[in-house]
Simulated assay, not measured.
Amino acid sequence: MFLPVTDHNPLRVIRFQYVTGTLIALNAALFVATGATMVPGAFQAVTLSYGAVPAVVAGRAALDPSLAVLPDGASLLTYMFLHGGWLHLLTNMAFLWVFGDNVEDRLGHVRFLAFYLACGVAAAIAQVAMTPDSTAPLIGASGAVSGVMAAYLLYYPGARVWVLVFMRLPLRVPASWALGGWIVFQFASVLLAPGDETVGVAWWAHIGGFFVGLALAFLFAPRTPPAAQ
Rank of each mutant, 00 (worst) to 15 (best):
P225Y: 05
F31R: 00
V98Y: 05
Y79A: 07
A159L: 02
T22F: 15
D133I: 06
L117H: 04
W86I: 14
N27V: 04
V184H: 05
A129K: 07
V53G: 06
V184W: 11
I14Y: 08
L3P: 00
A61E: 06
A52D: 00
M130Y: 01
M130E: 00
A118Q: 05
A205F: 00
L87I: 13
L82D: 01
S176V: 11
H83F: 14
A129N: 09
V46W: 02
W182V: 01
I14W: 08
F112L: 05
V201A: 09
S142D: 12
G108Q: 11
A55M: 06
A193W: 12
A188R: 10
A150Y: 09
L138M: 12
T37N: 01
V161T: 11
P10I: 10
G73K: 03
A136K: 10
P194R: 08
A228R: 14
F211W: 15
E197K: 14
V190F: 13
W162T: 14
A175K: 03
E104W: 04
F81R: 00
S176H: 10
S189N: 13
F210N: 03
F16T: 15
G100P: 03
L214A: 15
L169Q: 08
D64M: 08
G21H: 09
L113H: 12
C119E: 05
F187M: 13
A188V: 14
R223N: 03
A74C: 00
R168W: 09
A193H: 14
L192A: 15
T224F: 10
E104K: 03
L82K: 01
L216P: 00
A129W: 13
P194Y: 09
